[in-house]
Design a protein around this nucleic acid. Structure first.
Length: 464
RNA sequence: GGCGAGGUAGCAAAGUGGUAAUGCACUGGUCUGCAAAACCGGAAUGCGCGGGUUCGAUUCCCGCCCUCGCCUCCA
């Protein structure tokens, strides 16, 4: 195992080695469950999944924690709007999230804690922070973290090199009582708009602040020190900066050793937003006929540190690419006379090396194709084909790519009238009545079936 | 305005101090009555702009332009 990964904090590529033993501890900021996640959210989760798969293929174990934010402004607001108890509301969207994750072939985290279930942990952490002089309760019962009490604040996002936009310092009317505008909430006192969603604490009724949940859960499941913390780039500031401050001040640990941030997905060259109508969910794409596997391919086929431009053309390209991989895989299987366990990259060593070099997925995919093109699977001797097949499976497993069914079958599934049309066309063709044959072929195409002529007969393929 | 990430063929996207992967699209051939699919080939002549360093820069340095993100609860 020799994965080099860029670290946001040190701004350098660093070799990843578990702090303890052979298990790499990974914390990922999860979704806020108040609606369906969009493909931009999933870019982050899919890349984290590839990361985990590469680590595991490389021979290490992982301990993967990804939280669910099931209490915050949006979940509360929308559950009240829906007239549902918060827990029921977020459970529904959590189920949807899990279904989407499964469709995208994401490995489930080992722990997936929710914020609501860990409120005591968060309260305990706040008590520690207050006791150590890093936090204070305001008059209204909210508790804030005192940013000036942590000199290292801002290291991750290089705050010291930045000049905050004057407007950004505008006070939030909800958060009066803060000593400094930079201080952030650990506990938010109960407000009328929270409805029935409040919990009791030493500071009165209220609910936990968003940043704290990740610190508390990371501590609970991974300990004071762990290997990698990951999320979308937009979380660098303030979320991750705040997590570092809370965790380092509440424990004696160093918190995460390595920060892994994934760049955003763009659509048609611009940002994704509801108002532009270019914010897609997995279901939106499914309605247009694209599979989750095709979506996954699109999402991983760009380096994680660079913005990736999503287009429907790239989805079409992914479909073709996956078909090509499937054909090659089948050719290798035929040549090898069976499958074998994916134990090593074999002839795909160059592709694997690219994955180990800062998770260069597009480079690795390019290398997979280049290797296949060189190998010419159909003509390989059985032994070489078997090694290549195992290697291909090794790479596909690391990327989490599931190959589609080859588009060969279909004739059996065709309805009787389609079969009749096809047979009629074949007869016309035998009679060298090309005009009739072509007309019938066109009708079949309009009905959604492509005709493929063989030597002694025809085949149908579902087309639309 | 500050900080960060980017600008590579029609689209997407790797990579490199010395003739620029890969996928899609395009195109020639095989096959076919013609196609489709598949297979075997091919072309692109493309590294944002201007300087500098260098024998040589897309790659390093400087300046500029453009895009995207963050700038206090957006993956």
């Amino acid at each position: 195992m020799a994965l080099k990964l860029h670290d946001t904090l040190s701004r350098a590529e660093r070799l990843l080695q578990p702090l303890e033993g052979q298990t790499l501890k990974l914390y990922c900021c999860g979704p806020t469950v108040y609606g369906p996640a969009h493909i931009g959210n999933f870019r982050t989760f899919v890349l984290q999944d590839v990361f985990r798969r590469v680590i595991e293929q490389g021979g290490l174990a992982t301990l993967h924690v990804r939280n669910l934010t099931d209490v915050d402004d949006k979940t509360i607001r929308d559950s009240l709007k829906a007239g549902q108890p918060l827990a029921d509301f977020t459970r529904g969207w959590t189920d949807k999230f899990h279904a989407d994750c499964a469709a995208l072939n994401l490995l489930p985290p080992h722990f997936e804690p929710g914020a609501v279930a860990h409120i005591p942990h968060q309260i305990r952490m706040i008590e520690t922070l207050i006791a150590r002089g890093h936090a204070y309760a305001a008059a209204d019962g909210s508790v804030y973290f005192k940013v000036t009490s942590f000199p290292a604040y801002g290291r991750l996002s290089h705050l010291d090199e930045r000049e905050l936009k004057p407007a950004a310092a505008a006070t939030d009317s909800d958060e009066y009582g803060k000593d400094s505008v930079a201080d952030f909430a650990l506990w938010k006192s109960r407000k009328p708009e929270d409805g029935p969603n409040f919990w009791s604490s030493p500071w009165g009724e209220g609910r936990p602040g968003w940043h704290l949940e990740c610190s508390a859960m990371a501590l609970e499941y991974l300990g004071e020190d762990f290997d990698v913390h990951s999320g979308g780039v937009d979380l660098v500031f303030p979320h991750h900066e705040n997590e570092i401050a809370q965790s380092c001040c509440a424990t004696h640990g160093h918190f995460a050793r390595h920060w892994f941030h994934i760049a955003h997905l763009m659509v048609d060259g611009g940002k994704m937003s509801k108002s532009l109508g270019n914010l897609y969910t997995l279901d939106d794409l499914a309605r247009r006929g694209y599979t989750a596997a095709e979506t996954r391919y699109v999402l991983i086929n760009g380096h994680y540190r660079a913005p990736l431009n999503f287009t429907f053309h790239s989805l079409d390209a992914s479909r073709q690419a996956l078909q090509k991989l499937a054909r090659n895989e089948q050719a290798l299987r035929t040549a090898a006379g069976g499958t074998s366990a994916p134990a090593a990259p074999g002839p795909f060593a160059a592709a694997w090396a690219l994955l180990e070099d800062d998770l260069n997925v597009p480079g690795a995919l390019g290398e997979v194709f280049a290797t296949l093109n060189r190998l010419k699977p159909a003509g390989l001797p059985a032994e070489e084909a078997a090694a290549a097949l195992a290697g291909l499976h090794f790479l596909l497993a690391a990327l989490g790519l599931q190959l589609p069914e080859l588009r060969e079958e279909g004739t059996e599934a065709a309805p009787a009238e389609i079969l009749a049309l096809a047979e009629q066309r074949w007869q016309a063709k035998q009679a060298r009545d090309w005009a009739t044959a072509d007309t019938l072929r066109k009708s079949l195409e309009e009905a959604g079936w492509l005709v493929k002529d063989g030597k002694d007969g025809w085949q149908l393929t579902r087309w639309a």
